[in-house]
Write a protein that binds this DNA or RNA. Structure first.
Lengths: 230, 230
DNA sequence: ACGGGTATTATGTGCAGACATAATAACGTC
DNA sequence: GACGTTATTATGTCTGCACATAATACCCGT
């Protein structure tokens, strides 16, 4: 079998065996050495292939125990999180931005909890509107740790905090959540939609190591959707 | 520097240099051989580390050209897509399931387009309600390719198509999209919520190779959200 | 100057061997 | 039989080497 020696071929073959139930869910598959012998390649090559399948959620691998076909193949979808400006421009629209509120005050308890901050710690609160071809696209409601270097000097009236952070403050981790929310009168006013309209909401928190950076709530105008390939 | 020789350490060090702007956005970083010399390890180890950073979106790598720090670090979030039953049970609730409609008829044009099917091709249409502790949790509105082996014999009144497919029909790829939608009277009736409530909607299509398997629209009861770590 | 073929180069991947690590299985003791 | 210790084993990773591949940079002829 020519071409057998690439890890991609081996990964594909393993997928095929899983799909064909040659290796049924929950079953233990042959160990790397056996597969290497079968395919006539080095163990490292098999390792690389199986590692990919494990990352894809098709295999569960445990030292000493062996490699097992995932009983419930938990599928994973990867979304790219673009800067809002890029998101707008990728749709072929012109991006606009308007700062509405910038103030420093203690964050609401919910925000403090999301960021793991002490109560009453004052944060920079920004409320801004992103536009697409002049129409409301998204409301950015952000709480920002004022201890971040450069925040004091940044002009969030001209550059959105969204963009400023990407350029100036790399983060190491965080969380993201998607949900749906009905437009209250304030949101409806800002987004130019009818009160009660179903809006898509993204909530995100980011940290640099242990230091909280920001918590943001993005509320999109009606019709927004986010897509990915599985 | 002890412990320098692991690919995780090198990956972490590279992240640090990117975060510290030692390697600024857009810049070309030293090539693998140079880094291997600097860290005193094999090139393969550096390769492994940089490959991870590229997968995470922090680096862009091009043969002959070199490795570059991503100008706009497109962050990626990975969501796990659970079977609905598991989703319910993970919340500590009891899962219930009720089939509402099962019929074979030509799919609407929108569904045909999503699956890339010929017009008028008859599909199996299933409408079902998932319950959490007896309360409506999610509506599963699914179109299923009747050519899939075993579909004819499956009893979707007792096992949800969602679950049946996971167990019986591995898929190779597909798409997923999240959006928000207001509850129309029918949805409101099924989900036991007020008409106009904001609902979270997941639309998914899956294929096995070139063969379409299913297109499904999951409409969740108010309050549902999906979370992930970045 | 221009276009096209060619040399160069950084990444991509393979191999064989070795040791590290974690988790299980086997064992011996009480 | 229950429990702690040790041996075994499959995966995880590193090394050093080799060649493949793609994309750029260079050179040359017109």
């Amino acid at each position: 079998m020519p071409g057998t020696l690439t890890w991609q071929w081996i990964a594909a073959e393993a997928r095929r065996r899983i799909a064909a139930r040659l290796w049924p869910p929950g079953a233990r598959i042959p160990d790397e050495a056996d597969l290497a012998a079968e395919f006539g390649c080095a163990r490292a090559t098999v390792n690389r292939a199986l590692r990919e399948l494990a990352a894809a959620g098709l295999l569960v691998r445990r030292r000493k125990a062996g490699s097992f076909v995932a009983a419930h193949p938990v599928r994973k979808a990867t979304f790219e999180i673009p800067v809002i400006r890029q998101d707008v421009e990728a749709r072929g629209l012109r991006h606009g931005y308007r700062l509405i509120v910038a103030e420093t005050l203690p964050a609401p308890a919910a925000v403090q909890a999301r960021l793991g901050l002490a109560p009453h710690a004052p944060l920079l609160h920004l409320l801004a509107l992103h536009l697409a071809d002049g129409l409301p696209f998204c409301i950015e409601d952000r709480w920002l740790n004022p201890a971040i270097p450069g925040v004091a000097g940044a002009d969030f009236a001209t550059v959105s905090a969204n963009e400023w952070l990407v350029q100036n403050r790399p983060f190491s981790g965080g969380g993201i959540a998607f949900s749906a929310q009905a437009a209250d009168p304030q949101l409806a006013g800002l987004l130019g939609c009818t009160p009660g309209a179903a809006l898509f909401v993204v909530e995100r928190e980011t940290w640099a190591g242990a230091e909280p950076i920001t918590a943001v709530r993005l509320t999109y105008a009606p019709g927004y959707s986010v897509a990915a390939t599985i």
